[in-house]
Design a binder for these strands. Structure first.
Length: 342
DNA sequence: CATTCGTGAAGACGAAT
DNA sequence: ATTCGATTTCACGAATG
């Protein structure tokens, strides 16, 4: 999959204050458990605190220790557009579709380009037959690129996806998945009767969840140009029609973000994860909001390590009510007690 | 005094009819 | 499209430290 965002030199270097150290000698344990990792092995770093493996989470732009949860480097992402004026930007957007990637071209350089000169790759003039042939190709190329309503539709949607992904700090892979989903929705004729923005938002929301870097509906509702209700309605519809298999969001994937936001210790974070795993093993997760569960685990974890965090603080960063935190938190503690008894 | 806890009414959502 | 069940939220007052 050719990726155009690389064209621009891919932002600027991200190696500000980062600990960069390859671990080549000790492949033994890295190999054994890295099956769950993403495609290529990428750079593996070592945690300065506990010597555990660091995982670079491009979703949140953090480099986090897998074992102790230490956030080594954060904020290394998203030099994307800051112009996310979504209120009155109807007209604006049109002219800035290609935004941060290659704004020179309306299609971000994704399509083929046929040169206007009647020369071949070596600069030699073309024969007349070739010239006529090229002329026909150009005509069709032009038609395909600009006269095709679906293509225009897609252009707008991809611009929208790009914009939101930047605002939410979502990685390229998610953007790509989102555009694949959108294309499928388009080709299956799901668009009529629905707004482009709505479907684009739904596609991105689904892609983020599929990739395991979920953003809550609240976060989407803030930056999206569609109402929350339309987003959920469209999302459900798209998921159903395309038969997408998306698992419920894993509460654990919210934990590092919340812990960082509250500047809690790695230990607290580790405890929170543990509580969640245990609760899950007892089937406590079913039907509950993952965000609420994550928030409660953070609160409970902080309590166990005597770090001062109030329910209202947690509820603030997690956008979950205190009541929900209370309820989940009791359940978590109870589940933990049962686990110890057994 | 701030925080936590428990409660009932009310809204929102998904599933089923 | 409506109804039903479960969950979450809001608002309040009480208890706790």
């Amino acid at each position: 999959m050719s990726d155009t965002t690389q064209n621009t030199g891919d932002e600027r270097s991200r190696t500000s204050g980062r600990v960069r150290e390859r671990t080549r000698g000790e492949t033994s344990e890295a190999e054994s458990e890295s099956t769950s990792e993403r495609e290529n092995g990428e750079d593996e770093l070592i945690c300065p605190e506990c010597s555990g493996r660091l995982v670079t989470d491009t979703g949140r732009g953090e480099t986090v220790c897998r074992d102790c949860g230490l956030v080594v480097d954060e904020g290394g992402i998203d030099r994307g557009p800051e112009w996310r004026a979504f209120d009155s930007a109807e007209r604006d957007r049109k002219s800035r579709v290609g935004a941060p990637t290659t704004r020179m071209m309306h299609d971000k350089g994704l399509s083929t380009t046929i040169g206007w000169q009647d020369k071949d790759a070596y600069g030699n003039a073309l024969s007349s037959r070739q010239r006529r042939r090229m002329g026909r190709l150009r005509t069709w190329d032009e038609r395909f690129r600009t006269r095709n309503s679906k293509e225009r539709n897609l252009k707008q949607a991809l611009g929208e996806i790009e914009r939101m992904a930047s605002a939410l700090g979502l990685p390229k892979t998610v953007k790509e998945t989102a555009s694949v989903i959108y294309r499928r929705a388009l080709s299956e004729g799901l668009l009529p009767g629905r707004s482009i923005e709505g479907v684009a938002t739904a596609a991105l929301y689904g892609a983020a969840r599929q990739a395991g870097v979920p953003r809550s509906l609240d976060e989407f509702a803030h930056i999206a140009r569609v109402e929350r209700t339309e987003l959920t309605r469209t999302y459900r519809y798209v998921v159903r029609q395309l038969g997408l298999e998306i698992e419920p969001a894993d509460p654990e994937s919210y934990v590092p973000r919340f812990a960082s936001a509250l500047s809690l210790s790695e230990e607290t974070e580790a405890r929170a994860r543990k509580l969640l795993r245990n609760a899950e093993s007892q089937g406590l997760h079913s039907g509950k909001s993952p965000v609420g569960l994550a928030a409660a685990s953070i609160y409970a974890g902080a309590l166990l390590t005597n770090e001062g965090v109030t329910q209202s603080e947690v509820s603030e960063v997690a956008n979950v009510s205190e009541v929900t935190i209370r309820n989940r938190y009791h359940e978590l503690i109870e589940a933990e007690g049962d686990a110890l008894a057994a």
